[in-house]
Amino acid sequence: MTAGVSSSPRIAFPLSVFLQHDAQDAALPAGMGLQAKIFADAVQQVCSFLLHAPSGRALLRAAVLRGVHIGLDPLLEPQTSFYYPLQKRLDIGYQPSSLLSSQKGISLYLASIIGGLRRIWQHSRALTPDTRLKPEDFLRYCRAFEADVCAITHLAAWELRAAGPCFFWRHLLAAADGDVSVSFARTAAAHPRHQFDGTALRAAFLEWFEVAERVDACDHLALEMMDMALLGARGAAQDIGRMKLDTARLCQLGVMPQGGNYLGGMRFRAPQMRRGCDPFNRTHLKHIERDICYLSENQESF
């Protein structure tokens, strides 16, 4: 079934058509296929839930204002998403139609779309990971970037839980990042204001760094990004891996579209945030540092 989806034309719709259910049928193409109709119905259902979460609603509307489209990519996992800035398209993964109407299927798409919307928000503020950073600083920034996405996803799930639908929160609680859910819930329960003043968000952000496997996976992807940037720099003068990270840039990751900054004033010196790479990633990092050094000394022959 996946093969059938991949051979069909690209399925993508303007995100704006899913904000008003009454206008959806008129806004979507009349001759779209069955798979496109199933996908559109699934996205409509996810967006209807997301509108009940203040943070999710703010991210959704911010993306709509930027003319973002949402598309289906059968090569992606259901819980992941990928944003193409030039096309202004957010792709999410394929799910069988039998799973789309279930709470599990909706939860997978909620996680992927919220994460994608947060990345779009950061991209609009020029805060996506920048390969001009020194390799170690680039890893540090990518970790903080992913921790922010995870924290915001849990905030939206908590808001949905407060609004009524609690299945998404249960999904996160039972998933690989369940420790982040526990940390958020424990902090939010300690005092009523903690779920509104960013304290619970900050706790979830810091908890992300506690699991070594999570950090190592992020490092691996970040190093792959550096490798791709270096491949594109062959024969051309580039500033890859030479810029120092400013802590203020890390703090800006915490800005919310509805206002406030839950990372404001953080110094990013907690022990769990200074965790080193695992042996494999450390070796990869050393190779990249040598390549950058060689590129700097031999711009034309690299």
Rank of each mutant, 00 (worst) to 15 (best):
Y294M: 04
L86R: 13
L60Y: 09
G259C: 09
C218H: 00
Y83P: 04
T247M: 15
G198N: 05
E136M: 06
V149W: 00
D22V: 10
A62Q: 10
G264S: 14
L139R: 00
L285F: 01
N298C: 01
F138E: 03
D197Y: 05
G264A: 15
T187G: 00
P96V: 08
G260D: 13
L250R: 13
Q79F: 14
A270S: 13
L60V: 14
A222F: 01
R119Y: 12
P257E: 03
L139K: 00
L172H: 04
E159M: 12
S81R: 00
W121T: 02
P78M: 04
A26N: 10
G67A: 12
E289I: 06
D197N: 15
S55A: 05
S16Y: 01
A62V: 11
R143Y: 00
M32K: 02
D22G: 08
M266G: 10
G105N: 13
A36P: 02
A53D: 04
V211C: 06
C293S: 11
E159K: 11
T128A: 15
L90K: 08
S102N: 12
L108A: 10
S8T: 14
K134Q: 06
G198I: 02
D91Q: 03
G116M: 12
M266S: 13
M32W: 02
I70Q: 09
P257L: 06
A188P: 00
Y109A: 14
R118F: 04
